[in-house]
């Protein structure tokens, strides 16, 4: 059965008929061709599909899209402005926080959520907040360094 819903994604209203069984991640990737959110586990364990829904970071693989009619959704594609990377994205690039990059969009979104909530986290707070985002390449060191540098700059 298909349901008509509207998702406000990165500022655009997207009206779409969806299969009620589909996750938000399915809709983003397969219906809207927003491939930045990645499917690493489909069970909410890895964080690669993290997007921000109504201001809250969520693992989009665990949300039924049909439940979010009218929601405001921010994905990694909505982070850059006027062709310029968001400071979080830039810091991850410059500090070496990206290797294979598959986890990166999830980190970008969860770091944004962290800094929105707590603009001056301690390193321990940042590490605890990001514990749901798995990375197999970097050992997290340079990702955390990037977070701390963005927090510093926004002073």
């Amino acid at each position: 059965m298909k349901t008509l819903i509207t998702l406000n994604i990165n500022g655009d209203a997207r009206e779409i008929y969806i299969d009620a069984r589909r996750s938000l991640l399915d809709i983003l990737r397969d219906e809207l061709a927003l491939m930045g959110a990645h499917r690493g586990c489909d069970s909410g364990d890895c964080g690669a599909c993290t997007v921000i829904v109504n201001g809250q970071p969520v693992t989009s693989c665990m949300m039924l899209a049909a439940d979010w009619n009218g929601a405001e959704i921010l994905t990694v594609e909505g982070m850059a402005k006027d062709g310029q990377l968001h400071p979080i994205q830039r810091a991850l690039v410059e500090k070496g926080g990206i290797q294979c990059g598959f986890c990166t969009p999830g980190f970008v979104m969860n770091i944004k959520a962290l800094l929105d909530e707590n603009p001056k986290p301690t390193e321990a707070e940042a590490r605890a907040w990001l514990a749901g985002n798995l990375c197999r390449c970097t050992g997290y060191a340079k990702i955390i360094e990037a977070v701390m540098s963005v927090a510093e700059e926004s002073a």
Partner: peptide, 13 residues
Amino acid sequence: PKLDAPSKAAGKT
């Protein structure tokens, strides 16, 4: 910085 990193950060890779 890695040449491929900006595209990965932007979710475009």
